[in-house]
Amino acid sequence: MNKTIRTRTWILLFAVLLMASLAMTAWIMRRKAPGTTACIYSDGVLIRTVDLNSVTESFEFSVISERGENRIRVEPGRICVVDADCRDQICVKKGWLSESATPIVCLPHRLVIRLEAGSADVDAVSR
């Protein structure tokens, strides 16, 4: 029986781990994104950016890939997935993204929406 780990040890381990994870979760949930530019990635490729702060009128658009479709809605200061033909609907249930650092993810469609620093990322404008 001395080969097995004692139950007390297990309980202690999981308790500590649970506390640490809860603390981390709380900390992450309060973390703010570096900016308000929503960047929409499909299969790892950046396909669109929207500066949420400069949006005055709401609009919707769809991101369509061979894996499926996600309908995205943008309102002043926030963005969400309103509809998707994926199985789990996690992206829709996640709701609005306005300042949180945790991205909206649709794993079945490989879609990610996350907030990044402002549009100062343009080095020059061709005109």
């Binding site: 649970l18 994870s21 809860l22 981390m24 299969d43 945790t102 991205p103 993810v105 794993l107 990610v112």
Partner: peptide, 15 residues
């Protein structure tokens, strides 16, 4: 997804 930020979900997934 090539999105490093997904690691932020790890603590929640631990819980």
């Amino acid at each position: 997804t090539r999105t490093w930020e997904l690691i932020l979900y790890l603590p929640v997934l631990m819980v």
